[in-house]
Design a binder for these strands. Structure first.
Lengths: 109, 109
DNA sequence: TCTTCAGTTGCGAAAATCCGCAACTCGCTC
DNA sequence: GAGCGAGTTGCGGATTTTCGCAACTGAAGA
């Protein structure tokens, strides 16, 4: 058995386990966006964002392509949105109320 | 904003981002189990398993309780199963066929 | 009580992540 | 073709994870 299945799953989840990467995915839910935009909304160094995008790209979670002078990013598959939604649901179930995050969560759903 | 929401989400995903922890959760999908059983099926040192269980416990993903001489573990919420299922789906979408994992995946669904 | 079995915790070393700085590549425009 | 704006890559250093060993706690039996 090459690369056990449960290890592949673990890598998939670990790929999402970073604040910047989560934000990127949430932004991409609304459709493709140029790095430019992501950078404007996320407040992180350009090189840092680029590295996080590379992680997502290597995992196949997002895809990138050029459009004129800009580089665009998009979700690799719409299923990603489902995963994020499932994550939100668990968070709701898990933090009964650790310091008010619940409110924010509800507002976003 | 205390602990931004996207950071909480990232931590949630990172919690699942470990082969042993994934296996534990998959085993717990079928109902509560004693550490004893998990240890028998996972092939990892007892202390290591205990540490991974602690990670899941701290995140609220699983809960533990004693039953006689044994310590039992169970999913903190059934929603966890949904998350795992969503992960499986993405994996299917993402690895078009990186070395045959797809077959295993299909068999398990 | 003294053991023993079931798990957990502490600790330290090895490995992996994270992140800023600097250098580089690639289109585009002048 | 020189310069520029948009991103990426390389490189360390700091931080975080991971994991085995050894010591410890707690319940149940002898």
């Amino acid at each position: 058995m090459s690369v056990p299945l449960y290890q592949a799953k673990a890598e998939m989840f670990r790929t999402l386990g970073h604040p910047v990467r989560i934000r990127v995915l949430e932004l991409l839910q609304d459709g493709p966006r140029p790095v430019r935009d992501l950078l404007a909304e996320i407040d992180v160094e350009a090189s840092n964002l680029s590295q996080q995008l590379a992680v997502l790209r290597r995992a196949g979670v997002v895809a990138s392509f050029r459009e004129g002078a800009l580089v665009m990013y998009a979700l690799g598959t719409p299923d990603v949105a489902d995963l994020l939604a499932a994550g939100r649901r668990i968070l709701g179930a898990v933090l009964t109320d650790r310091d008010g995050l619940l409110v924010e969560l509800r507002a976003q759903e």
